[in-house]
């Protein structure tokens, strides 16, 4: 009898540990590294963590909508790259020697931001339209778009790196609110995006439709939901996120090239799935995505502090992706 009770409790504890494995991992990494390398707990580490995660979180937010509706967006990384290159072109100093458009005056930074976001939204809307109306599977549609955008970026930049930014641009990426180290602008912008997406997912009809389509697209159609329009909005919103992220990353890097953004879509998808976005559709929370993205960066920083050679980081990250999803799938398998 006592044994049985113990067994049940043991099971409960194990379930609790597995269901919160990622958070526990986050905390465990921090504590262990913090004890071994006391300098780990510092405002500088926090600031670095936030700066490096900010753009990744924004990209992951964009991809999450596609994933929740059982789609994907492989064009994310290249969209980010194109947005960065366009922004860079319009944010060069007037006295910079190799300026792309030497005779162009200083363009308002907000105008540039709006411009790159609109370009990215357009590509996202095209993705959504192709997926909804031509019935091309999202994997293929966005794979094609990935290549197309890369080509456009090559044509646009002539494959030349772009540098020499105005201070107002680099400042967005390097500065922080009131000069406080733990309040970098990047993190604040990223947090605002998180709040907006949380609102969209939880408080709007569009958000409810998104989860409904992800949960059961056939049923969504029976219930009169315009699944095509909803999907176009989802992919266009994703585009907006990539545009913003590209703008921020360009300024952060201090110079851009066509290679910026390469592979970011996979990192974003990994972050989402680690954070509990189900590729079976209908499941995913903004808070989870944040955790998923943080795990990646925290692992990287922690291993840096421990003096592990950076190459090993990839092996560990790969293992984390697979294990996190394996642990997550348990929930669904058990319910059958």
């Amino acid at each position: 009898m006592l044994e049985a009770v113990k067994g049940v409790q043991g099971k409960k504890v194990i379930n609790f540990l597995l269901n919160n494995a990622i958070i526990i991992l986050l905390v465990a990494i921090s504590i262990v590294v913090g004890i071994l390398r006391p300098s780990f707990f510092s405002t500088l580490t926090a600031s670095n963590l936030m700066r490096n995660t900010a753009a990744r979180f924004i990209i992951a937010l964009g991809v999450s909508g596609c994933l929740i509706t059982r789609g994907t967006d492989l064009s994310a990384g290249r969209s980010v790259g194109l947005a960065a290159c366009i922004a860079a072109t319009f944010m060069q100093r007037s006295d910079y020697a190799s300026k792309v458009y030497p005779n162009m005056g200083d363009v308002n930074i907000l105008l540039v931001l709006l411009g790159v976001v609109l370009v990215a939204v357009m590509f996202g809307a095209i993705n959504g339209t192709v997926i909804s109306f031509l019935n091309v599977p999202p994997f293929i549609a966005t794979l094609g778009m990935q290549t197309i955008i890369y080509g456009i970026c090559l044509v646009f930049t002539g494959a030349q790196p772009i540098g020499g930014f105005r201070e107002v641009y680099t400042n967005v990426a390097s500065g922080s609110l009131f000069g406080i180290t733990v309040l970098p602008y990047l993190a604040i912008i990223s947090a605002v995006c998180g709040v907006i997406m949380w609102f969209v997912y939880n408080k709007t009809a569009h958000g409810k439709y998104l989860y409904a389509i992800g949960g059961n697209e056939n049923a969504a159609e029976v219930n009169g939901i315009n699944t095509r329009r909803t999907k176009i909005i989802i992919y266009a919103t994703a585009g907006a996120m990539y545009g913003l992220a590209g703008f921020l990353l360009g300024g952060k890097a201090g110079g851009t090239s066509v290679n910026l953004g390469w592979g970011y879509e996979l990192e974003a998808i990994a972050g989402c799935t680690i954070g509990g976005v189900s590729t079976n559709g209908g499941v995913g929370r903004v808070s989870g995505i944040l955790v998923g993205v943080l795990v990646f960066e925290l692992l990287r920083i922690a291993m840096q502090f421990m003096g592990v050679e950076p190459s090993y980081t990839y092996i560990v990250q790969g293992l984390v992706i697979v294990l996190a999803v394996a642990v997550d799938m348990r929930k669904y398998v058990a319910k059958k």
Partner: peptide, 21 residues
């Protein structure tokens, strides 16, 4: 299962989905 319920959504979401507007 196929065209009725949204399995991974809550009872509340399932009731309100067709009249959310």
């Amino acid at each position: 299962r196929r065209t009725g319920i949204f399995g991974v959504l809550s009872v509340a979401d399932n009731i309100s989905v067709a009249s959310i507007n």
